[in-house]
Design a protein around this nucleic acid. Structure first.
Lengths: 127, 127, 127, 127
DNA sequence: GTGGTCTAGACCACG
DNA sequence: GTGGTCTAGACCACC
C-alpha cells in the first residue's frame, strides 16, 4: 500500500480500516487482522498499526478481546458515520467551502467527481 | 486571529492574504501590510508571515519591491484561481470525495453550506 | 459474565470465586466447579480459570484433590481477609487516596456507595 | 522519579502532571516543560512523555502552541476534576467498594489514610 | 498466538 | 528551539 505524503501514515491506516468496514470487507463481529499481520501486509511498523487501532478503539468502532485481537463492533458503521462525519463537517467542511469560493470550484465539479468515484467503487466490488 | 490546529499557521496566513485579495480588501497594485505589521496584527512570528509572503511571491500573486514592501500583482486573482484551484482539485478533492462517500455526506449538504457562506460574505461586504 | 477491561480476566475470575466464598455461595469444604465447567459458564479460556485457581491455591484459600477438583478450605474466609486485605491496603489504598485528593472525592461519597452496595448484596441474598 | 510496576509509565507521567497542576506547581497559562526536558528529568523516553501529554491534551487539560510547547489550559483544574473524577467514580469506585466489602475495610481506615495524606501534602508545601 | 509498553534513534515541519 | 511521526527491536502479560 502506498501512502500520501501530506497525511500521517497511522491516520491513513485508520482510514483504510474504516473503508474496509464501510465497504463490507470486515463485517460487524469480524476479527480484524492482528497488529503484526496488518503491519506486514501494509509494510509499516506494528507501532503505526497500533496507533491506528487505538483511534478506532477510542471511537468505539472496534473492540478488543485480550490475547485474541481486535473485532469490528456491532454498530461500527453507525459509529463511523456519527463520529467521523461530525468531524468532517465541523473541521473540514468550512475550509472546503472557503476554498471552493476562493478558487471558483462549482458544485457540479464536486458532484461529477463523486459520481465517478462511486462508479469506480462499484466496479471494484464486482471484481 | 485564531488558527486551526490541523493546518500550518503560515499556510493559514497565506490563505488570509488570498482571501483579502479575492474579496477586494487589497486591489491590484496595492501595497500589502509590512511583515512586521501583519505579524503583530495576526499575533504570529514575523518569520511565519515571511513564509506566507514567499509562497504567494513564488506563485506570482504578489511582487516585491526591495526595501519598500510587497504589492498585489495586476493579475493576482487569475494567478490564484489558476494555481490554487489546480492544487485544490488535484490534492484535496480526491480525499474530500472519499470522505463524502464513507461518511454519507450529500451534495446537498455541500451546496447548502456554500450558499450560506456566500450570504455571509455578502453581509460582511455591506458592512 | 462481562469483564472489565482494565484488569486481567484471570484476576477477575479469582475475585469472582472469592466473592462466592465470602457471600456463602460456596461454603467451607464445598467442591468448586471444575475448570472446564467454570470456563464454559464464564465464557473464558480454561487456561484462565486454571490461573485463577492457582492464585487462590497459593494463598491457601482453596485446596486441590488430584483428579477430583478444588475445594474451599476450612479457614478460607480468614485467609482471604488476611492476605487480600493486606494486599489491598498496601498496593491499592495509596493510589486511591491520592486520586481522592486530586479529584476531590469525599469520604461521604465512598461511604454512600458502600451503603448502597451492601443493600444490593442483601437483596441479592434474599432472592 | 520512581515508577510503580503495575501501572504504565506514561499514565504515571500524566498523573504527575495532573498533580503538578492541582498542587499549583504549574498554574493556568503556564508553559509545561518541553517533551525532551520532562523526559530527561524523569529519566524516561521522550515518546513516553508525548503519550502522557497526548492524554492530557485530548482531555483539554493542556493545549499546544505549535513550535512553542504545551500550556496549562485556563480551566485545567475544572477539566481534571470533571473528567478524571468521573472516570474514577465510574471505573474504579465500584471495584474499590467491592474490595472494601470483601476484605472488611472500614470507612474509618480510608478516612484516616486520607487525613494522613493531606497532612503530608501540607508539609511538602511548607518546604 | 495476541496486544501493550518502552527504548533508542532518526527525520521532519514548524516558529 | 518545539512537537509529530516513523522505524527497529525488545520484553512483558495475557489467553
Amino acid at each position: 500500500m502506498e501512502f500520501r505524503e501530506n497525511e500521517a501514515i497511522y491516520a491513513q491506516v485508520a482510514t483504510f480500516v474504516i473503508e474496509g468496514i464501510i465497504l463490507g470487507k470486515w463485517a460487524a463481529g469480524d476479527k480484524l487482522p492482528s497488529v503484526r499481520e496488518l503491519a506486514s501486509s501494509l509494510q509499516v511498523n506494528p507501532h503505526t498499526v497500533v496507533r491506528a487501532y487505538d483511534i478506532l478503539y477510542s471511537r468505539e468502532v472496534i473492540s478488543n478481546k485480550r490475547g485474541i485481537g481486535f473485532f469490528v463492533q456491532e454498530d461500527a458503521k453507525e459509529k463511523i458515520k456519527l463520529y467521523s462525519r461530525e468531524d468532517f463537517i465541523k473541521r473540514e467542511l468550512p475550509e472546503i467551502i472557503k476554498s471552493m469560493y476562493l478558487f471558483d470550484v462549482s458544485i457540479k465539479e464536486i458532484e461529477e467527481a463523486l459520481i465517478i468515484y462511486k462508479q469506480e467503487i462499484q466496479q471494484t466490488k464486482k471484481i
